[in-house]
Design a binder for these strands. Structure first.
Lengths: 282, 282
DNA sequence: ACTTTTTTGTAATTTTACTACATTTTAAGT
DNA sequence: ACTTAAAATGTAGTAAAATTACAAAAAAGT
């Protein structure tokens, strides 16, 4: 764990003086790494040995070693932490916070994704006769995006955000078809039903959802990711960005599996758009 | 630039003894950050002041400061760089690369976004009688997502990914209406036409597009972001993630502008979904 | 080959961090 | 409420580390 986070975490296990040090450090870590132990002690209004003891409590060899750790914490620019948007934030502030938490969540998602599962999913998708992407609400957006990617591959792709169409499509699916169901909560009743309908008809069901949910239980294979959704705002934000990135990964895996020749085909699809666009002047 | 790279770069500008130091450092930088100047000098078979001079040549204040820089170089184990996916990448590898380049691009986008423009856009959106989101292809996904966010605010919101519907809707728009047009390239002919149609009818046109493009020129206000799209794969990936994050930011700005009471309303929208879901067992 | 410049090293100085011990503060027990 | 033990903090001295000033050696130019 990052030493800055560690300090923030253990803040209440510190003694009075140690907390003073911690607060000075947290307030401006980038200043501290250039300060001597004496300077820091003065800043925090405590003695030098207290700073030294503080460093040891954090499992470092002493003050210089502590600064090294601190420098490493700061290395990734501002570490991406899930800072919540506040009532009185300016445009500048909430913009920064949203970018940061999006990135922090992508980092989390990356760590929690299992590449073996991805590999098997790509296997299934490349072998599919027909691929369907279903989602509702915010997840419909992800399904929509998936369709937009996979239709380029010249594979039969279907996307519905209409409950009835999803059901009908699921009933019509057969062995060799892959149905991808997207739902962060994994508790949307109608989607869970679609999953079992598809399974009954021998279709393969890939779930982009959370492990252990009702939907996950109905799926052949589950692609799950840990994301800390900021529920203060009552809107799905980070979860869908992570899901879209996962779609990118699946699509990339698909093209890689298909080989070079296939990629020329992608270029053709893209070039076909040319006439609908204004030329570049440069 | 990373100090380790810098050392490797300037290797031939160093004097004989300085190169000895450089080589010891490059061979095992992680050892050096825990060594004293005396230990390093001994390792390199040179004197302590030489090490000190070496540090200064690299624009650091001295040996301790140099170690700080070195520690930071090491912390960026894998900095977020736009690494391109390779032919023979395993699932593990392309997953990591896609996450990393997505994050690198978000970082770029964040830096290039102007908070003043965001603020003005939020102003316009909060005052709008009707908001329309239009896009085509990958950008339709972003428009779709925007609708999903803004409809929660109990504002008239429209979204079309159909060229004719977009045109008709633009013609019907009037003063007080805001039309948001999304296109990374900014060169999609029909969208540019929609922009001018909307403008002719006195609607406000916000463009989420690249500066200087035909579309940008037709807009009242342009929200532009720098993103390095990986064109090897012929699919829009990073650009749309950045656009979606921008949508999050606009939506957040919108809710903040509307105040606390308004947020209770959002909760109601979210709670209305409850009956469509399976209960949590915990 | 000699002079000048650059590089490197030695030794002293200064800065910085740490240790041992004393004092204060806090908490626990009677 | 008072006493005693334990924990926390500070003071002063010590040790270690880094830096400076200067001298010696090496390299480059004339």
């Amino acid at each position: 764990m990052n030493i800055l986070e560690k300090i923030a975490n253990e803040l209440d296990t510190f003694s009075k003086s140690e907390r003073k040090v911690a607060e000075v450090i947290l307030a401006s870590p980038s200043t501290v790494i250039h300060a001597s132990i004496a300077a820091l002690a003065k800043q925090a209004n405590i003695s030098e040995p207290t700073v030294n003891r503080f460093c040891r409590r954090l499992d470092t060899k002493g003050y210089p070693d502590f600064k090294l750790h601190l420098a490493q914490s700061l290395a990734n620019g501002t570490p991406y932490v899930n800072r919540h948007v506040d009532e009185n934030d300016s445009a500048d502030e909430y913009t920064a916070k949203i970018f940061e938490s999006t990135m922090a969540n992508l980092e989390m998602a990356r760590k929690s994704l299992d590449s073996g599962t991805i590999n098997r999913s790509v296997d299934l998708l490349t072998q599919a006769n027909k691929i369907s992407f279903f989602g509702l609400g915010a997840s419909a957006v992800v399904a929509h995006d998936a369709q937009n990617k996979f239709f380029r591959f010249n594979v039969p792709v279907v996307y519905f955000d209409d409950v009835l169409m999803q059901r009908m499509s699921a009933i019509n699916s057969t062995q060799g078809d892959v149905v991808v169901l997207i739902s962060h909560t994994g508790r949307t009743k109608s989607l869970v039903e679609v999953a079992s309908l598809a399974r009954e008809n021998d279709a393969t069901v890939i779930g982009i959802t959370t492990e252990g949910t009702p939907l996950a239980k109905e799926c052949t294979i589950v692609l799950s990711m840990d994301v800390a959704e900021d529920t203060d705002l009552y809107m799905p934000m980070s979860s869908r960005i992570a899901q879209l990135t996962l779609v990118d990964i699946l699509a990339t895996g698909f093209t890689l599996r298909r080989g070079t020749k296939f990629r020329d085909n992608l270029k053709k699809v893209k070039d076909s758009l040319r006439s609908s666009r204004f030329d570049r002047k440069e």
